[in-house]
Write a protein that binds this DNA or RNA. Structure first.
Lengths: 206, 206
DNA sequence: GGCGTTATATTGGCACTGTCAACTTAACAC
DNA sequence: GTGTTAAGTTGACAGTGCCAATATAACGCC
């Protein structure tokens, strides 16, 4: 833990950047501002990051790790049924998105994926929480058979769509009034989807 | 059509801005660049727009109008069943998103909604295409009864989620290889959701 | 037609941004 | 203890959004 000039500027920077992101939004997040708040010169960040995009990628990566943790813990504390757990995971995702809209926005920027392999890995790790859930649902016959990956991604797309749109309109325009996000997710959105994925249907074709 | 100095700079600007957006991405879109390409001074845009955000809002609004048109025409040329039409509409949405990822990104920025009422209206108009479809599906008993708005928004969230995530990873990571977007949407994502919304199921509860 | 008013556009400037190049300083290897 | 190298600084540059002051063209009105 030897200190050179600053210490571990790299970590400090992404931490400070995350703070600034939450406070002022993506738009106002600048390298110079984060350098200033970290107490270093305006060019110090370039010792640790190739450019601004690289900083954002790192913030995004951290975001996915955080998201994974929240989803995991939501699953862990939910009741022991696939349905309950899927709803809990979905709720965790949407709560994350509404709590940290700016962070989510950074997580889904159009990065050049080949440049940030760790970012891709982190996002896949988060997705994997859902995957395991779907798999176990299929194993205990709660969910229909089928390509587990695609079913997982269906749920992800659905939940993510709800999150993004809710953020965009800065209000639960997706939900009827007096409905909490949690209730909305459970009863409406994911509910519909899960109906499509659930077993115990007679005539699925429309 | 009297020309003052330029003519109708306002329209020219959003047209030029849309071009630049498609060419260079959100990040590189600047007021000065669009002014230059429109052949006016760097401050001319301020005659017609309060600030950069206002320009983006207008571009976004135009985007929703375009999206609505594409969805409408997709519905019009699809076969005459609710299922086929919903799939067609979803495909149109996703095609739009993949053709104009930057435009879609601008459409879903975190605007201050109260500042841009027309933007909200345009987005609702686009959504309304889906709404009518769902409604007719309920009327001809193809879709389950229930809050039409919420069912519509479920589909929207789903499709939008697929679109956003596909853009973010710049590849159809959501779909198995050798699957076209169209097939993927039809057979996998929206398909699952529609199963949940379809009638003719015996035991919907999981 | 001439004139004032007003919308439209320009010039110049400011603070701020990302990034580059050149320089300085501190840590470590030997 | 000295040289090498990583870490951080200073200074600069072009580009950005936006503001203030100025110019110019169109229009209504007489």
């Amino acid at each position: 833990m030897a200190k050179y000039h600053h210490g571990n500027l790299r970590n400090t920077l992404i931490q400070v950047a995350t703070e600034l992101l939450a406070e002022e939004g993506t738009h106002a997040l600048s390298l110079r501002k984060m350098a200033q708040r970290a107490g270093v010169s305006h060019n110090a960040p370039y010792m640790h990051f190739a450019d601004k995009e690289a900083v954002l990628a790192e913030i995004a990566e951290e975001g996915f790790r955080l998201l994974a943790i929240e989803i995991e813990s939501a699953i862990a504390t939910a009741e022991n049924s696939t349905y309950e757990r899927l709803i809990a995971a979905s709720n965790a995702y949407i709560r994350f998105a509404l709590d940290r809209p700016n962070h989510l926005q950074v997580m889904f920027r159009p990065y050049e994926v080949e440049k940030y392999p760790n970012l891709l890995l982190a996002s896949q790790a988060a997705l994997n929480c859902l995957f395991e859930l779907v798999k176990s649902g299929q194993e205990n016959n709660t969910l229909i058979a089928g390509n587990t990956h695609q079913m997982t991604k269906s749920i992800w797309a659905m939940v993510h769509g709800v999150a993004v749109i809710s953020i965009a309109y800065q209000t639960n325009m997706l939900l009827p009034e007096n409905t909490s996000i949690e209730d909305g997710v459970a009863s409406v959105f994911v509910g519909f989807l899960l109906d499509g994925l659930a077993t115990k249907k007679s005539v699925p074709e429309i």
